Simulated scan of single mutants.
Amino acid sequence: MSSRLSPEDRFRIQVAAHGVVALMASSVPGALTSPRAGIAAAKAMSTATGLTGEVLAEKPPRLPFKGSVAEIAKTVLPALTRSVRILDRVQDGEGENFRRTMRMIAESAGNANTGAPTPAEAEMLRKIEDALRTTAS
């Protein structure tokens, strides 16, 4: 199934997914809040199924996350949009599976600290949702 994905496609999907974790963990920095969000998101990522789950189960290559949240978002948000398009092209329904998985990862991180997203986390959730929705019919 995954052989239909090029190494570049697989890398883009990894960047998108791990980027969601990085963005959500960075939305509310702190000695405890950021790690909790990252752990919650990583646990959610481990439940991914289908082709999305297969790609996310691989050890990620060195990911290009450096700098501010804004700089990370410049890489991750377009990668989310492109990943949905790639997965839609490769397998029917897989783009929607990826969207649901990314939403679950982001929401898990957003709820990790207080049970509800902070305003900063809620705004990042909105930006992630916008990037995922861009390709929706």
Rank of each mutant, 00 (worst) to 15 (best):
I128G: 04
E8T: 11
T101E: 03
L125M: 13
L63W: 11
I128L: 03
S2V: 12
M102V: 10
T135R: 12
A79T: 00
T81R: 07
T134E: 14
P60I: 06
A22V: 04
A116L: 12
L5W: 05
G30W: 12
L87I: 09
S108V: 09
L23K: 11
E58W: 10
A136E: 14
L5H: 00
L125C: 01
S3G: 05
A120D: 14
I13H: 08
H18E: 12
A40I: 00
R126Y: 06
D92Q: 13
I86H: 02
M24F: 11
G38I: 03
G93M: 07
I39N: 05
F65I: 08
Q91M: 15
F65K: 05
R4E: 13
P119Q: 05
P61T: 08
A25K: 02
P61Q: 13
M24W: 12
A109R: 09
V55A: 11
M24C: 09
R103V: 02
T52K: 02
E71Q: 15
P64F: 02
R103P: 03
I39C: 02
G30E: 10
G30H: 02
A22H: 05
T81H: 03
L23I: 10
K66T: 10
E96N: 11
S108M: 01
A16E: 09
D92Y: 06
R12N: 11
L77P: 05
F65H: 08
S27Y: 11
V84Y: 08
I86P: 05
K59F: 07
T47Y: 07
P119A: 04
A17V: 05
R36A: 14
A17D: 00
R4T: 06
V69Y: 07
P78M: 10
K59S: 12
S83G: 13
S46Q: 14
A70T: 11
A37F: 07
P35C: 04
S83H: 10
A22P: 04
E54M: 13
D88L: 03
L80R: 00
S2N: 08
S46T: 13
A112L: 12
P64L: 03
R85A: 15
M124Y: 00
H18I: 06
S83V: 00
V15C: 02
N113T: 14
A116Q: 14
A44V: 07
L132G: 00
S2H: 10
T118Y: 02
A37K: 14
L125E: 00
E129G: 12
S108R: 01
T47R: 15
V20K: 03
V84T: 09
S46V: 05
Q91K: 15
P35T: 09
P64N: 00
D130L: 13
A112V: 01
H18M: 06
S6D: 06
E123Y: 05
T33M: 11
D88G: 05
N111D: 12
I128N: 04
T47A: 14
A73M: 03
S137G: 14
K43W: 08
L80F: 02
G50Q: 12
